[in-house]
């Protein structure tokens, strides 16, 4: 539409990341380095994913939902999880608590994802004259994605970094992590398999992200208790 509209959409897409950083203790402990490192890891992961997709996937000829292709895509999507694992465990961070570490990693990860996938379309599209709700929805999607990524990072840090966690919770943690990790395939199924329109899909994503955030928060605090 106009630069104004672009500005609005950019605020919606990237604002929450900044707000998250400045409002939480992340800013106090100066975890920006961790976030940047996570973003770099994300870039590497995206590259690996691209190569995998290019090698194993056929070019979709129509918009129909092909279960085989989609499951393959979901499998490749787990490269993301590997990347997150690397970012959480292998990177040497300054001594920041696990609490802040996963948040910083998740934030950097989500921000890099938003920049990579949303900035260019936004720049090209949102400044055009034609008004669509598209970019506003896309911004909302970025918000949901932030919540998902932070949740996944939280679950990842529970899985890989915390040693003494209640045994009963372990399968739940893995199940939740699995659900969050396959979320892109789920939305893709909703959109193409069931033919949902974008507003509905985004609504679902927002709702699901809040639910997952709540669950992972509960899990995290449940695991926190015995150690304290």
């Amino acid at each position: 539409m106009t630069v104004f509209h672009f500005f609005n959409c950019a605020i919606l897409t990237f604002g929450p990341h900044a707000v998250y950083y400045s409002a939480t203790p992340l800013s106090e402990y100066d975890t920006i380095g961790t976030s940047v490192k996570a973003a770099v890891v994300y870039l590497g992961t995206a590259l690996v994913k691209l190569v995998c997709l290019a090698t194993f996937l056929k070019v979709p000829e129509n918009d129909s939902f092909d279960p085989y292709q989609e499951s393959l895509k979901a499998l490749i999507g787990f490269v993301d999880v590997a990347g997150l694992y690397f970012a959480l465990t292998q990177l040497t961070h300054r001594n920041i608590s696990q609490n802040h570490k996963f948040q910083a990693v998740g934030l950097g990860w989500a921000f890099a994802d938003s920049v990579l996938h949303r900035l260019a379309p936004l720049w090209v599209g949102a400044r055009g004259l034609e008004f669509t709700w598209e970019y506003i929805l896309q911004g909302l999607e970025a918000n949901a994605n932030l919540v998902f990524t932070v949740s996944l990072a939280a679950l990842g840090s529970l899985m890989w970094l915390r040693k003494n966690k209640p045994r009963a919770l372990i399968p739940i943690i893995y199940a939740c992590a699995g659900i969050v990790a396959t979320m892109p395939s789920i939305t893709s199924y909703l959109r193409r398999g069931l033919g949902w329109h974008l507003p509905k899909v985004v609504g679902f994503e927002l709702f699901a992200s809040l639910v997952m955030a709540f669950i992972s928060w509960q899990l995290f605090s449940a695991c926190q208790r015995p150690s304290v």
């Binding site: 691209l50 190569v51 997709l53 290019a54 090698t55 996937l57 056929k58 070019v59 918009d63 990579l116 996938h117 949303r118 260019a120 379309p121 599209g125 034609e130 008004f131 669509t132 709700w133 598209e134 929805l137 896309q138 893709s188 959109r191 193409r192 329109h197 974008l198 507003p199 899909v201």
Partner: peptide
């Protein structure tokens, strides 16, 4: 194929959104 997908993937979100948007609002 790889080349095509490479360009496709980076704009994957846009592509899906565009497809979905045909019904959403008049282009």
């Amino acid at each position: 194929e790889g080349e095509m997908l490479e360009s496709l993937y980076s704009a994957l979100a846009l592509f899906f959104i565009l497809v979905a948007c045909v019904e959403l609002c008049d282009a």
